[in-house]
């Protein structure tokens, strides 16, 4: 396991850089470190959209696009969905994502 760092910008602008392990999901890294707004009601099963983040433009390519199941879930929150939207529980952290930066999306 290698130690990575990922950064969340919370809804009120607070910047939180947290340690994570490769193999964890971004949701686990956020929730485990108490990032505000990463609620993860469904425990990471891609079924609630309470781990919604906007991926920083620089990281979009490395992170990749949502698959069908995830895209459908994101469609249910289209009021706050952007082109950069992802569900954090569906992003598996790897060495390549060391330094990843995302903003936490609002949850009504």
């Amino acid at each position: 396991m290698s130690a990575l760092e990922v950064t969340f910008v919370e809804e009120d602008g607070t910047v939180r850089t947290v340690a994570a392990d490769a193999g964890q999901t971004l949701m686990e890294a956020g929730k485990g470190n108490g990032v505000v707004g990463i609620l993860a009601d469904c425990g990471g099963s891609c079924a609630c959209a309470t781990c919604h983040v906007y991926v920083d433009a620089d990281w979009l390519e490395a992170v990749g696009a949502p698959d069908d199941v995830e895209a459908e879930m994101l469609d249910m929150v289209s009021d706050v969905r952007r082109d950069t939207s992802r569900l954090a529980c569906q992003i598996r952290l790897t060495d390549r994502l060391n330094g990843l930066r995302v903003a936490v999306a609002p949850y009504a």
Binding site: G43, G44, S45, C46, A47, V69, M73
Partner: peptide
């Protein structure tokens, strides 16, 4: 946690 396995959207 012990139940989650059975239930993911995928």
């Amino acid at each position: 946690k012990l139940m989650d396995n059975a239930f993911s959207a995928h």
